[in-house]
Amino acid sequence: MEKKNNLRAWLYLAPLLILMAVFTFYPLINAFIVSSYKGYLPLSGTADEIDFFYNFGVILKNPLFKKAVINTFIIAGVSVPVSILLSLLIAVSLKSIPKLKGFFQTIYFLPYVTNTIAIGMAFAFMFHEDYGVINLILGWFGISPVNWLGGTASYAAQMIALLILTIWNGLAFKILVFTSGLENIDKQYYDAAKIDSASKWTVFKRITVPLLSPLILYISITSVIGALKAYNSVVGLFGDVKLGAQNNSMITIVAFVYQYKDGYTDKGYISYAAAASIILFFITAVISILQTVVSKKRVHY
């Protein structure tokens, strides 16, 4: 009976496991193997020699990779906290207007159902120095036009534009999740806080955030992982060739990996890509573990 049960279960799992074996587990293992080859040619499967550190050394010495890591860290480090704080504030504000909540929520959700490339292009045009709406609005406040994305745009300007797009894009999901998270908090705590004469800010800081902390932790981990993989928004704003106002000025780790995408016929290229993607994997893993450990002390359940 036990045996039969086992067999039956594997039968149900077969379609999944076969596909994953080929397209998930094999490439995962292969990435590690390939990253240890020197002069590897994927199509013929030949390599010059095995050297575990060679490709990592090449990548880590590459100034473009350094730039990609810095850009990626800035994107994750700014967009995640800002968007989490903003979406929390929005979710809490929505809570106090039950009647219009659904309406606003629907609007706020729209960025979730867009095509990142299409909306990235719309942003690119919004940030256009002469024809864009952003500089028009800034003009109302007496700020002179900024060159956001043009050929001579400053690093800060490009980065700000990219961050705004990233935050705009990520708000929808977080607002929705935090709103439902708030609905699950027992209303009695808020009644009790009123009786205890807590101000709105105190309620937010001392009641809402702690009670929501498991969810905030979860969302911040997934957001950091997502932000570390930033790519589509860069392509939307700058195109997949230039990757920045100046060539590669906004390159990210993922974009760095992808620049080897047409190099499958070139010797060793794919090993560089593998090494870079493994580094990304480790960064992701380390940051999420760190986040979990650090927050364990502050999360209350």
Binding site: A192, D196, P210, L211, S213, H300
Partner: peptide, 30 residues
């Protein structure tokens, strides 16, 4: 919050993430 009321709820509504001390201290802080 301005009525000067103490209320014990039907199921207490103690703040689960605060210690006993913090729970009792909370109204005084406010």
């Amino acid at each position: 919050e301005k009525r000067g009321i103490g209320l014990v709820f039907q199921n207490y509504a103690l703040y689960p993430h605060m210690t006993v001390r913090e729970n009792i201290l909370f109204p005084l802080e406010n």
